[in-house]
Computed example of a mutant assay.
Amino acid sequence: MKRTSFRRAVVPGVAALALSLAACGGGDAGASDSEGGETAVSGSVAVDGSSTVYPMSVAAQELLNEQNPEVQVTVGEAGTGGGFEVFCTGETDISDASRPIEEDEAAVCEENGVEYTELQVATDALTVVVHPDLAVDCLTVDELIALWGPKSKATNWQDINPEFPDQEIKLFGPGTDSGTYDYMAADVIGDESETTRKDYEASEDDNVLVEGVAGTEGATGYFGYTYYEQNSDKLKAVAIDSGNGCVEPSAETAQSGEYTPLARPLFIYVSNKSYTDNPAVKEYVDFYIENLAEIAEVGQFIPLSDELYAETQAALEGLQG
């Protein structure tokens, strides 16, 4: 899922942050040589996985390269499931994920001798959007399940709630390789089959989902909060009522726990061997976590709370040995 607009959107922020980091000495990109000088770390790093985490990992790459262009980081966005497929066979160093690794994926990693460390890097608010002219402003969790559940036969918004408009429903959503899809299916809908309904326009490209919802009357879809923010001029976000009233997606409501059950953690999974054996991987990961709050801000993500950041730091320290 390529987000062709991302680089244009964040480069000014990246440049400003790079200057700030350089001024305060953040993200040391060099290692001392035997004569007391600095020898820049060089090498390549392969990252793939979640399209939701993709902008953040690209921001980390661009910021690091402002200080050390010798570390070459390739960031792909095959989806969380697709990322774990190549990570657990040793083809990548880092896997971006918008959900925790699943048992079958962990088993493949174990089978191939790929040991890893999970690092939470941000919080996201999975955002349900509708066509801006659709008079639907809030959905209960039950209505969300009636809309997207695997047993749903709803074709008109009045099938969901008789007070909703008499308007045909058009559904746009991520494909089954997406961690966003997995989260909606397993953690929001919670059906034993861990699937959503299948009669919708699926795409691994969030741009396609945005344009589909924005250009179709009665349309709805869902993706990460960051991508909604980037397209808020053409979409309307729907508040979610989990039993305590309608709550709109935002950084504040996701961090506070009010935006349930659609707030979710975002991760990078680091190959322990790559981190230990490849100085470029260590350089990138250390920089990523050291500057995590700033990188999240540049990528327009919801930064971790102090408590969660301390947990991420502790996990990284364990990886450092």
Rank of each mutant, 00 (worst) to 15 (best):
T226Q: 14
T226E: 12
A186W: 02
K2L: 15
L134M: 05
P174K: 13
D286N: 13
G224I: 00
L171T: 03
G173Q: 14
N68Q: 06
T312W: 04
V10E: 04
R7H: 04
G179K: 12
N161H: 13
A59Q: 03
A296I: 04
V208M: 04
V45L: 10
P165W: 03
I160E: 03
I289G: 09
E294I: 00
L139M: 00
V58M: 05
A97Y: 02
R7P: 01
A18C: 06
D233V: 07
D166R: 15
Y228H: 06
S42E: 15
N244R: 12
S51K: 09
N161G: 08
P132V: 08
T196C: 08
V247W: 03
Y275I: 09
T260H: 09
A280F: 08
T196A: 05
G212S: 04
G175Y: 01
S32Q: 13
E201Y: 03
T117K: 03
A122G: 02
L134Q: 05
S50C: 02
G79P: 07
E77M: 14
Q320A: 13
T89R: 14
L262R: 02
A280K: 13
S57V: 14
L319K: 05
S250Y: 11
A135W: 00
L63H: 07
S250M: 14
G49I: 08
E297N: 15
P279C: 06
I189F: 10
L19G: 05
N65Y: 00
M56Q: 11
G83F: 10
V141I: 09
D199Y: 03
E118T: 08
E294M: 12
G113I: 05
D306M: 13
P55M: 05
L19R: 12
S57R: 07
Q167I: 00
